[in-house]
Nucleic acid binder design. Structure first.
Lengths: 153, 153
DNA sequence: ACTTACTTAAGAAAAATTATTAATAAGGAT
DNA sequence: ATCCTTATTAATAATTTTTCTTAAGTAAGT
């Protein structure tokens, strides 16, 4: 069994969080700790507004801006995963099954056309959750060109 | 080889578009045709603003509102695919590999934890495009509860 | 030719996120 | 312990993206 803090976040998780902050020179402010704990505790994939409301219960003065800023920095440290993609909507008329690679730097979107053997099969547990109408698979990272640019510095 | 129109949209694609519009009682306005063609021709996954600018070159009076309205209806007909997820950002502190099923009706997000055999492997052609830092796999559709609600009507 | 959906225009309004600025406080130095 | 530097924060304002309103005109499709 895991060692747990009173609030349910594993001590391991918290320690990991503190280490990552220290490593990147981020100060351990109460707001940051509270926001991290809130996401770590929630099982419902909260949005920024929801985190804001939850944190406000114990820290009535946090601003929504801090929540957004903190969530972004936690994402940068890899401590929190952003579900979905919050950028503006983009469209594609190619309806054949294919995926996308999005460069986090330049924003370019590349098509990934799977070979017949690579096509994604919908896991049975997903079909049990509901009727799947759409599959969205997106990889993101640094594209070749942006990688090269970084090295040029 | 495919039969092509002068502008590069396959006749098949256009025919499919016209049929779908007819089936759903959507009128075949020049704006709708032009917007569809623009997305179909573009290889760059354009956003609404980009479509707007492109369409304006040949139809200087289209409004941005029409572009948004049309793109949405084309998506509803399944003629156009919305890349990424345009909803608000949601966060998850669970960093283990897992996917999500999002209900298009109620918005609830369900976790999909793959069994070891189901885990996604990153295709080599993706690794060739750049350094993958994040994988985002999202299924969407109607969840069980919302399915039941629909039947109850 | 008629009906009715659709579009334009111009503006307002939501909704989500980010920037500005002055005050505050974390964490290292003294 | 206290001081200092600099990141961080609260509060508010601003931006960005998308949708809605209203009204008047246009044109698709039967």
């Amino acid at each position: 069994m895991h060692t747990q803090t009173s609030c349910g976040v594993t001590a391991e998780q918290l320690e990991n969080f503190k280490q990552a902050c220290k490593q990147h020179g981020l100060r351990l402010t109460p707001q940051r700790v509270e926001i991290f704990k809130t996401v770590a505790l929630s099982k419902e994939h909260p949005d920024a507004e929801h985190v804001f409301e939850t944190v406000r219960k114990t820290m009535p003065n946090v601003s929504l801006d801090t929540v957004y800023r903190t969530l972004s920095s936690l994402e940068d440290l890899g401590l929190v995963f952003r579900v979905g993609f919050s950028s503006k909507a983009r469209f594609d008329a190619d309806l054949d099954e294919h995926y996308h690679f999005v460069c986090t730097q330049c924003g370019e979107v590349f098509d990934v056309v799977p070979s017949s053997g690579e096509k994604l099969s919908i896991p049975p547990e997903v079909q049990h959750l509901g009727r799947v109408q759409k599959v969205n698979l997106q990889f993101s990272g640094l594209c070749r060109r942006c990688q090269a640019k970084q090295k040029d510095l």
